[in-house]
């Protein structure tokens, strides 16, 4: 009896495995909930607030995808993943989607069999030094001690940069961001290096921000974006186009507040297609035609998300920079909805 139950379970699971690999979209719909791999806590990008509500720039994208697929931005479960577990969690199916400040690199794309479907934040590695050090360029950091997190791409970038410029440094390795900031403030290192967005957030919370400067050199490209599993193109398209919808919304001036009104009154054919007033854009992806409408209604357009979580009006105070729309000199560019 037990044996046959066991064999039956085995056979059933093999069968289910065969079906399940077919579509994350069906899984999400069947579950009625999107499982989104997120950070264990990164200022401005993703962390639960005092009430346990997840907030942040990356979190908003997860909510947008949930709104597009399920019509309800609250139907997301956030699974905190660490730097070590994030890609395995995605590959093993524990999460449907990973939006966790992950840098798009060649090996992650090819070797780990993941798909980076978009770049929602263009970051780069920078340096912060104390003003009285008298350094104005990273190339003057010869012989400096540098605080750096172990086991990250930043560590490798740092080694490359110093080797290429033929200067020396002494690394002071630390476990996490908080530790790095403390060591730097305590004077254990001359410079502190991490992604420029992280540096800005750290600087904003220091007791004396005016005494610290972020050097102009950005020594690496860190395109951060949402990740899905290889081979599930339909799901990848949904995530990608949800993101693009937010970009197009900013381009067209559609905001969280006026989206209903614009959907009712707009005569712009692209806007009408995007918001599902005309055409069958949703049906082509297997979601509701109001997918983009729901996503924008839930979280606002890209510019609004940026401004609310990490923009210049927040204490983190990041400028749009590379993340400005292409029409305003940035890199954020969405293909047309046609």
């Amino acid at each position: 009896m037990t044996k046959s139950v066991f064999l039956g379970t085995l056979a059933a699971s093999a069968l289910v495995a065969g079906f399940a690999s077919a579509g994350t979209l069906d899984d999400v719909k069947a579950r009625g909930e999107l499982i989104c791999g997120s950070n264990t806590g990164l200022t401005g990008f993703g962390a639960p607030d005092a009430n346990g509500e997840w907030q942040g720039f990356d979190v908003a994208l997860c909510r947008a995808v949930a709104a597009a697929v399920l019509g309800d931005a609250t139907k997301v479960k956030f699974v905190p993943t660490t730097g070590e577990t994030r890609f395995t969690a995605l590959a093993s199916g524990e999460v449907d989607l990973l939006v966790r400040n992950s840098t798009w690199t060649f090996s992650r794309d090819n070797d780990l069999k993941l798909d980076f479907v978009a770049v929602n934040y263009y970051d780069g590695q920078g340096f912060m030094v104390k003003k009285d050090l008298g350094v104005t360029s990273a190339k003057e950091l010869d012989g400096a001690t540098v605080c750096i997190q172990t086991g990250t791409t930043t560590e490798l970038n740092l080694a490359d940069f110093f080797k290429f410029n033929n200067i020396t440094y002494t690394p002071v390795t630390v476990a996490d961001d908080a530790e790095a900031q403390r060591q730097y403030l305590a004077g254990a290192c001359d410079a502190f290096t991490t992604d420029a967005s992280g540096l800005a957030a750290s600087r904003a919370t220091m007791p004396d921000p005016a005494n610290h400067i972020i050097l102009p050199e950005i020594i690496s490209k860190e395109p951060l974006g949402p990740v899905v599993r290889h081979g599930d193109n339909n799901w990848g398209d949904i995530v990608r186009w949800t993101y693009y919808a937010l970009l197009i919304a900013e381009e067209k001036g559609i905001t969280q507040a006026n989206v209903d009104e614009i959907a009712a009154s707009s005569t712009d054919p692209e806007v009408r297609r995007l918001l599902g007033v005309e055409g069958e854009t949703g049906a082509m992806m297997g979601v509701d035609n109001a997918w983009a409408h729901n996503a924008i209604k839930a979280v606002g357009n890209y510019g609004e998300i940026f401004a609310a979580n990490i923009g210049e009006s927040t204490p983190i105070g990041l400028a749009r920079g590379l993340n400005e729309l292409w029409s305003k000199g940035g890199l954020q560019y969405a293909p047309p909805v046609r």
Binding site: T43, A47, A201
Partner: peptide
């Protein structure tokens, strides 16, 4: 808690 901009640092 540290990810909250209020308590970072």
């Amino acid at each position: 808690v540290r990810a909250d901009i209020d308590w970072k640092g």
